[in-house]
Simulated scan of single mutants.
Amino acid sequence: MQRILLPLILVIMIGISTNYAFSQEMGLATFQETAQIIIDKSISQNVTASITLQSTSLQEIQIPAELEKKIRENKQVTAIIVTNEERCVLGVVNESCIMINVVVDDDDRGIFGLQDNAKKVSESYIDEINQVFDTDAKFHSVFIHNDDISNKALETSGIISGRGTISAVYTMPKEDTSSMYEKISAILIPKTIRDSEGFYEIAKELSNDKNAKMTFSLIPFETKSLFQLKLAADFPGKASTISEINPLEIFNVNSIKRSDYFSGGFYPLNSIIQVVILSDDDINVSNVNGKIIPTQIIDEEKIPIDITDNGWIFDPDAGKRIQGKYIFGKESSIDKNELVFSLAGEKIKTEKPETDESVIVVGIITIVAIAAAIFYLKGYRK
Rank of each mutant, 00 (worst) to 15 (best):
Glu123Trp: 02
Ile81Trp: 01
His140Pro: 02
Ile129His: 09
His145Arg: 12
Ser167Met: 11
Gly91Ala: 14
Asp134Gln: 13
Glu73Asp: 07
Arg163Asn: 11
Leu114Lys: 15
Phe133Leu: 05
Lys138Leu: 09
Ser167Asn: 10
Glu73Phe: 07
Ser122Lys: 06
Asn101Tyr: 00
Asn151Val: 09
Val169Tyr: 13
Gln76Lys: 15
Gly164Cys: 12
Thr78Cys: 04
Met172Tyr: 09
Met172Ile: 02
Glu175Gln: 12
Asn117Arg: 14
Asn101Arg: 09
Val104Lys: 15
Asn94Tyr: 06
Gln131Asp: 13
Arg109His: 05
Ile160Thr: 12
Phe112Gln: 12
Ile98Gln: 03
Ile160Glu: 07
Glu95His: 04
Ile126Asp: 04
Ala137Leu: 13
Ile166Gln: 06
Ala79Met: 14
Ala153Cys: 06
Asp127Ser: 15
Glu128Gly: 00
Asn94Val: 02
Thr156Ile: 14
Val102Gly: 02
Lys174Tyr: 02
Gly162Lys: 09
Asp136Arg: 09
Val102Asp: 03
Ser167His: 12
Gly162Glu: 12
Ser141Thr: 15
Ile81Tyr: 01
Ile149Ala: 08
Ser96His: 00
Pro173Ser: 13
Glu128Met: 04
Gln131Ala: 11
Ser150Arg: 09
Leu114Cys: 02
Thr78Gln: 12
Ser167Leu: 10
Val142Asp: 06
Thr171Asp: 07
Gly158Asn: 10
Ile144Cys: 05
Asn84Gln: 01
Ala137His: 07
Leu114Gly: 00
Asn146Arg: 13
Val93His: 11
Gly91Tyr: 14
Asp134Trp: 05
Met99Pro: 02
Val169Asp: 09
Gln76Leu: 09
Ser124Pro: 01
Gln76Thr: 10
Phe139Ala: 11
Pro173Val: 07
Ile144Trp: 08
Ala79Trp: 05
Tyr170Phe: 15
Ile111Thr: 13
Lys138Ala: 15
Ile160Trp: 06
Gly162Arg: 12
Val142Asn: 10
Gln76Ile: 00
Val77Lys: 04
Val132Trp: 03
Val89Ser: 10
Asp148Val: 11
Asn130Met: 12
Lys174Leu: 03
Glu95Cys: 00
Ser167Gly: 10
Val89Asn: 05
Asn94Cys: 05
Arg163His: 11
Ile80Asn: 00
Ser122Pro: 03
Lys138Ile: 08
Glu128Trp: 01
Glu123His: 05
Lys138Glu: 14
Thr171Tyr: 03
Val89Pro: 03
Thr78Asn: 08
Ser122Tyr: 01
Glu86Ala: 05
Val142Leu: 05
Phe133Ala: 06
Leu114Trp: 03
Glu85Ser: 04
Arg72Ile: 01
Ile100Cys: 03
Asp107Gly: 09
Gln131Thr: 08
Lys120Ile: 14
Ile100Gln: 02
Phe133Tyr: 12
Ala153Arg: 13
Ser167Cys: 11
Ile126Gly: 07
Ser141His: 10
Asp127Lys: 14
Lys174Met: 01
Asp116Pro: 00
Met172Pro: 00
Asp108Pro: 00
Met99Tyr: 03
Lys75Thr: 15
Val102Trp: 02
Phe112Asp: 13
Ile71Asp: 01
Val82Trp: 05
Glu123Tyr: 06
Cys88Val: 05
Val89Asp: 07
Glu155Leu: 11
Glu73Leu: 08
Ile111Trp: 12
Ile71Ala: 03
Asp134Ser: 13
Glu155Gly: 10
Ser167Tyr: 09
Leu90Met: 13
Gly164Val: 14
Cys88Gln: 05
Asp108Lys: 07
